[in-house]
């Protein structure tokens, strides 16, 4: 029996990334559930952040200790973010501190422009991306599906781009599937990750079927009634979506087309023209 498989490892910036599902580490009911969910998803990256802390906070940081152990065991890489930054200057400082703390040049670059929708600020984002690339960072910017912005970010040297599916934490799925489809078609060589807004495994599968290289999500798993089971569900959906993309989806058509041959029927129908 031929068992269909899909290659889970993906190469980005000349490094092997262990999976196409990338997971956030926030909002889990407990550190143990976070670790179990990461283990179940076997993600390529796990996102982390940094904030002001007291000495006591740092010494008692069991979450971080468990996260380090789990990512090390599963082969997931850490992807620090610059969440909460609203200017290029803030994001550059945060990325610089993150590289020192987490000992990685990977950075999920977030520069927000609107605190209600958490929509990225394209101008500050591009400025920060240019500077961080010049400093040797491997920049993955969280952006919108705007084609020109995405092209500029790639021109600036970003190793990939991460257009949103929908606003962070909304769970609305791909709100502009046609725009994302066009983006994929116009930038066929770019490494693209759908980041944010995915609420269901079917939405992750839709992104993968469109040919996106990976998906990044947090809330949909962390806030599920059973995060570990949901992590597995997303992993299966991402794998299935990628498999379908590689298999080649049929072309949609507006009219019906019978799959059973009409030739040889024992009666004759007059067809309308």
């Amino acid at each position: 029996m031929i068992v269909p498989t899909v290659k889970q490892t993906v190469t980005l910036a000349e490094e092997d990334i262990a999976g196409r599902l990338w997971l956030g580490s926030s909002l889990y009911p407990s550190p143990d559930l976070m670790a179990e969910a990461i283990t179940a998803a076997s993600p390529g990256f796990v996102t982390v952040a940094l904030r002001r802390q007291t000495a006591r906070n740092i010494e008692d940081n069991g979450h971080w200790a468990l996260l380090k152990e789990t990512t090390s065991r599963t082969g997931a890489r850490l992807l620090p973010n610059t969440a909460g930054c609203f200017t290029a200057r803030e994001a550059i400082l945060m990325a610089t501190l993150a590289r020192e703390l987490f000992a990685t040049s990977w950075i999920k670059l977030e520069v927000m422009g609107d605190d209600y929708t958490l929509q990225p600020d394209p101008f500050e984002l591009l400025e920060a991306a240019r500077e961080l690339v010049s400093q040797g960072f491997k920049v993955l910017p969280y952006c919108t599906e705007d084609l020109v912005l995405c092209q500029r970010l790639l021109d600036a040297g970003c190793v990939g781009i991460m257009p949103w599916g929908a606003p962070i934490g909304s769970g609305c799925g791909l709100q502009n599937p046609e725009g994302l489809k066009r983006l994929r078609q116009r930038l066929p060589e770019a490494f693209m990750v759908i980041d944010a807004g995915l609420g269901k495994p079917s939405q992750a599968m839709q992104a993968m079927e469109l040919g996106f290289d990976a998906v990044l999500l947090n809330t949909a798993v962390a806030q599920a009634e059973q995060p570990v089971a949901m992590a597995s569900a997303f992993a299966a959906a991402v794998s299935g979506g990628r498999m379908a993309y590689e298999a080649g989806l049929m072309t949609e058509r507006p009219q019906a087309s019978p799959s059973t041959p009409l030739l040889g029927l024992p009666f004759w129908h007059q067809t309308s023209s």
Partner: peptide, 28 residues
Amino acid sequence: RLIHQGQYHELALVDGMQVDILGAMTGG
């Protein structure tokens, strides 16, 4: 501005200085 660990003993504090100490935390 980031201060590397090896520079801690060299950095003289000045009145009005802003010192931030950050540690790891979960993120999305």
